[in-house]
Each structure stands twice: as C-alpha cells, then as structure tokens.
Nucleic acid binder design. Structure first.
Lengths: 256, 256
DNA sequence: CGCTCACTTGAAGCAAATCAATTAGTGTGG
DNA sequence: CCACACTAATTGATTTGCTTCAAGTGAGCG
C-alpha cells in the first residue's frame, strides 16, 4: 500500500501525452483542465502479479486508472466463496463502488505486472468544482459501469456455457481492439478458474467449452494465449448479431 | 410520457416534508438547498400498473425517484429474452445507467400504481454547481448502485435456488423495514415469473422453493402476500449470519 | 358462469457440477 | 541440468439440481 511516486522517467507520462486519455477520465477535458488533473494524479509503483491494490474493507481514498496490465476485483461472501466482479484493462477506472460508504466493498488484485494512476477522490471532488466537465465525466464513467454490470448480469443469468464464454471472449476482443491491441490474438490474464468464477461456471466447463470451440474451428488456444479464427461465428454464439458489433462504440457495452 | 405537473394537493409534497427524504437524493442537504432542489423536481401523474416510465433506447433526460409503489427495470437481448435488472422501492433512484450515452439501456415499468419525482438531469447538474453536496450525493447513490449490482451478480452466479430466493426475500425485508414497513409481512409486487427471471431461475423452481420454505415453517404465502415466520433461519439460508444483519445499515447492501 | 392468467405440483430430461485420473507447464533446490 | 513438488488445464465418468414438459388448481374478472 505504498503510495510514493516513482522514477522521474515515469512521472513524465502525464494525461496529456498518455495514449489512453481518450478512454480514461480526461476524456473531453481541454489541455488546461488536463494539466490540473495531472497535478493531482499520483503514479504508483507498478504492482506485481498477485499484489493487492486494495482489499475488502479498506478505507476508500482514491480511485485508480489502469495504465498497463490488468486488475481483477472480487467480493467474498461470509461462507468464503468468491465472486469476481470485474476485470479492468488499460484506460479503465476502478474503485468507484467504494464512494458510497468510504470503504472498498471488494478486493482488487493484479493479474500481471500492472501500472496505475492513483486519483485521490477528495482532491478530485475539489478540483471538479473548478472543472465542471470532470463531474460530468465521472457520472458517465459510473453510469457506464452500472450499465455494464447489468449486461454481465444478463449474461450470467440467461445464457448457457457456450454463450457465456463466447460473450466473454468477444467482450475482451472488443475492448482490446479499442486499445489498439489485436482483436483476434491476445493473452488471457485470467486463469480458467477465474473465467469460470466470473461467468458462474466451473473450471472443467470452461476447459471443455474451449475444447469444443477449438474442435469447431472457431479459435485456437495454447494455455492463456487465444487466437480467434472466426470472429463472426463467435459473435453469433455470443448472441450479438454481426451488424450490431459496432454498437460497441467508444464506450463499450458488453461484459464488465 | 406526459410530464405535466398534477393537482396542487400533490404539488405541496416537497422534499422538505417528504418522509423519504433521508433515503433519497436530498439526504444530507440543508433546508435551503432542499428548496432549490424542490424547484427543479417535477411531480408526475402516477403510473398505473404496467405503464412504462421509459423504454430501452429512449432519450435520457431525467432521473426518477420512487415516491410510492414500485418499478422494475429490464434489458432485452437481441434474441428477445429479458433480464430484470432492478426493483426500485420508495426512496430509490433510477435512470442512472442512462447518463453515459444519453439513452436508456433498459426499460422501466410500474409493477403497481406508482408515483414518482422526475428530476431533469441537465438542470440537476447546473444546480449542483451551486450545491456541491448534491454532486457528492449523486456519487454515493451511483456508487451504491454499482456495489449492489455486484452483490446481485454474486447471488446469481454462486448460489442455489434456495439461497437465491432467501436472499431476495431478506433483501426485500431489509429495505422495507428501512421504509418503516413491516419486515416480516409484505406484498410482493413482482410475480413468480419476474422473481425467477431476476434470480436466474424458472417460475416452477420459485414456486417449489416457496413451497419448501412453507413446509419447513420458514414462512407462509398466499399468492403475493408473504409472511416470514423465521427471519433468523431465512437469513442463515441467504448466507447472512444473524449478527451481520445490521451490516445492512442505512445504505442497504444485498440484492438490487 | 366460464374464461384467463398466475401459480402449483409431478415426472422426465439434460446441462453443468462433481468426482476422478492424467497431462502439461512452472518453479525450486540439489 | 535434472528430479521434485506443485499448480493449471484437460478429459472422461457419474451425479444432480434445475429445467422442461405436462397436467392440474384456484383466484380474479368480464
């Protein structure tokens, strides 16, 4: 939980020059406002795989933007079973669910080496008084999170194993494309077990479904590496008509 | 979608005197600020059962607070299957998921005769510039919605039929208690079918589970009327230890 | 009164969970 | 560099909780 800023070289990377800024909080801010935002953002030492960003019950002080790598969030019930509630990729904000009672309702852990921007919330609120657009931006981001949680809900409640996994992969593919990564070849940062948990399935079902997709020629996998061969068909299984693909406009819609 | 204000008698009921105001948006505002808020709130003609408040794709202009009755929200997939995403009781706000692209991602329909406050969002944002607390309040409400969506997710993904229904009932009970209704006797505004859809189960499973609860002496039902006989045991099934019950403090935690 | 709609109850079928065994990577220390 | 343990993933066999199909029942209503 150290919050000290890191090497100068990293400090230079400000919102203005960050290639993620049109996915992230500064979206829609002008250069002057972005400077102000830059002044309150702390860059943290990158987290190593398995390190916690925060844990359930921690006091809420900041929201975080992923710069590189990925973070998963999960809640734990009293019986001890976990539910993964979110997967956050570069340009996405997390910690928003902690505002309402100043306490994190979930834990956040790095799935790989991950660097982040830390944005102290109180200071952000102060700053927002002089930069009205910021408020609006935050509303949009939170609103989007609500809407996408609902999509995930739908996915888990109504679909079968094939549809769930297909939707998960398509969602990932869409978000990666937005970040200028390949939409057909990527590395899963989640394990089969995590994917299963996220989708409400067991590891065996995930594995079998991957195998089936593979034997049907939809994709190839090699452990965590995935190569999608037939994006159209996979989208069809996921329940997204081809022509609806671009409905996933800048503010992506499906899963997380 | 008529927005005209109604009879004077109803108009008099302002936030200041509304007994729900400590559950709703004005929470934490002083009297002066509440007056300002009152000026922008429109009271709508009550909705009859089955009437839409808004539908998927409608342009977003306002958020709504339930004054009495109840509203359900649901999304529809391209295949046409529905997923109920929320049940809103008096004092709760809905429409927050539409901010991010100015379009409602779900439909909202009255489950019974329901009266609402309409709060035009643009005007609310303007007002918020002079009443900073309002922003904070909105953040809290949205944050709470995110957190509770995640709880619902957990419920649907990880629990079995009994646990789901028990958690649903306990959540309802807790929220009703907060509104000074009985926590053990109440009227379900949702049908068995809706409850099933909400929890990712079929109507038959809901019915059977109610029957089992009844034969175990946990509760009695008569159509939509529910009388909980053993709140403790029901909470235990729902996976909430007794001593954790009051964790559901003013900002309730479980389902919706 | 008879129609409909919401709910209940039973029996059969099935998708995914569980149990179990094997294989493939990953990391550790000698 | 190889043996060792350990974890992640795959695949098969079996079980099971929920769904589906089917046949009532009972409340509400024109």
């Amino acid at each position: 939980m150290t919050t000290k800023p890191i090497k100068l070289s990293t400090l230079k990377t400000a919102c203005k020059s960050c290639k993620l800024h049109d996915l992230c909080l500064p979206l829609g801010l002008d250069l002057g406002d972005m400077d102000k935002l830059d002044n309150i953002i702390k860059r943290r030492k990158p987290l190593q795989k398995g390190e916690f960003l925060f844990q359930t019950g921690n006091k809420f002080t900041s929201i975080y933007a992923v710069r590189s790598g990925s973070i998963k969030t999960y809640t734990e019930s009293e019986q001890g079973d976990e539910q993964i509630t979110g997967l956050y990729l570069p340009g996405e904000l997390l910690g928003l669910d902690a505002i309402h009672n100043y306490e994190h309702p979930c834990s956040a852990i790095a799935l790989e080496t991950t660097s982040l921007c830390e944005i102290p919330f109180e200071i952000l609120e102060e700053l927002s008084e002089s930069v009205p657009n910021l408020h609006h931006q935050l509303y949009r981001i939170m609103s989007k999170e609500i809407a996408s949680d609902q999509t995930l809900l739908m996915l888990i409640a109504q679909k079968n194993a094939e549809e769930k996994l297909a939707a998960f992969l398509i969602n990932l593919s869409t978000r990666l494309k937005l970040r200028n990564f390949s939409e057909t070849e990527f590395h899963l940062s989640m394990s089969r077990k995590d994917i299963g948990n996220y989708l409400g399935l067991t590891i065996e079902t995930i594995s079998r479904t991957f195998s089936r997709f593979q034997s049907e020629g939809l994709l190839t996998t090699q452990r965590k590496y995935v190569h999608i061969l037939d994006l159209r068909k996979l989208k069809a299984i996921a329940g997204m008509a081809d022509d609806c693909a671009h409905h996933n406009e800048p503010s992506d819609s499906a899963v997380n």
